[in-house]
């Protein structure tokens, strides 16, 4: 046990003190290996969330725009995509890509001549999560776009804006403000869903915690830590989204006006 020797730093000292006085074994504080596993687990969860969030927003913005396309087949394609990703469990999606699609793709040879899959499990997780959240984002953005009055779009047309110009400069900025609460929910959901990457051995927060509790035999303690860590991570995301929402508030807009 790490606490048999002198703790290397203040955090470890706190961990050992807690263990001695409360009988709670927080190895993530006083065991350097567990601590680094746990921290990189948090780091991986944040990485998965931020990158998937970024791509899912791009998918949402582009998809919602394409949904207004004049071409029927484009609209069908987008709607098909939404139906598939909304009506299947995200874990099944991750498995589908990691075990299904990945096998169909050619492998690449690395420097030492080993055959490696085209995408790593982390990349597949990001890919899959982005599509999952992106499908919902398309629908969310669409509801925002539909809330922008036709007359406002018409004013942009009358000024010579193209359809894309109207979308980028007028529709999207207004739509985002309308759909921020729904977007907020979906992004929180995305952060929580990153824990499914556990199933394809991505060393994110849940995976790291499970390894730690298996080795240290402190399942209940780590369970509580895990829950609290997710609460904190989601709290930070919600706080960030709320500040964004506040910074985008327009005086005199959004109180049932603008029909």
């Amino acid at each position: 046990m790490a606490c048999d020797v002198a703790p290397p730093d203040a955090i470890a000292a706190v961990g050992c003190w807690i263990q001695a006085n409360a009988g709670v074994n927080l190895t993530i504080l006083h065991d350097p290996f567990d601590r680094s596993r746990f921290i990189s687990g948090i780091g991986m969860t944040i990485w998965l969330s931020v990158v998937s969030l970024f791509f899912s927003l791009i998918i949402g913005v582009v998809g919602a725009w394409a949904q207004g396309s004049d071409y029927k087949w484009i609209r069908w394609l987008i709607n098909g995509f939404i139906v598939v990703f909304r009506n299947t469990p995200p874990l099944v999606q991750i498995f589908f890509f990691y075990f299904g699609v990945s096998n169909l793709l050619p492998a690449v040879e690395d420097d030492v001549g080993m055959r490696q899959p085209l995408l790593t499990n982390v990349q597949w997780a990001i890919f899959s999560l982005s599509l999952f959240a992106g499908a919902f984002n398309i629908e969310i953005f669409r509801s925002g776009i539909e809330a922008v009055p036709n007359s406002t779009k018409e004013a942009a047309s009358a000024l010579g804006y193209t359809r894309l110009g109207t979308y980028l400069h007028v529709v999207l900025p207004l739509a985002i403000r309308v759909c921020l609460p729904a977007l907020n929910n979906n992004l929180v959901n995305l952060l929580k869903t990153t824990s499914l990457a556990y199933a394809i051995a991505v060393p994110e927060l849940l995976y790291a915690s499970k390894n730690i509790w298996t080795d240290a035999q402190n399942v209940p303690t780590m369970m509580v830590v895990l829950l609290l860590t997710y609460v904190a991570l989601v709290g930070v995301l919600v706080w960030a989204m709320n500040s964004w929402e506040r910074s985008m508030a327009i005086p005199g807009f959004g109180q049932g006006r603008g029909r």
Partner: peptide, 12 residues
């Protein structure tokens, strides 16, 4: 140029 009954300014 065109001006509408409901102004249709860009509220943002």
């Amino acid at each position: 140029g065109m001006v509408f009954q409901q102004y249709n300014l860009f509220p943002h």
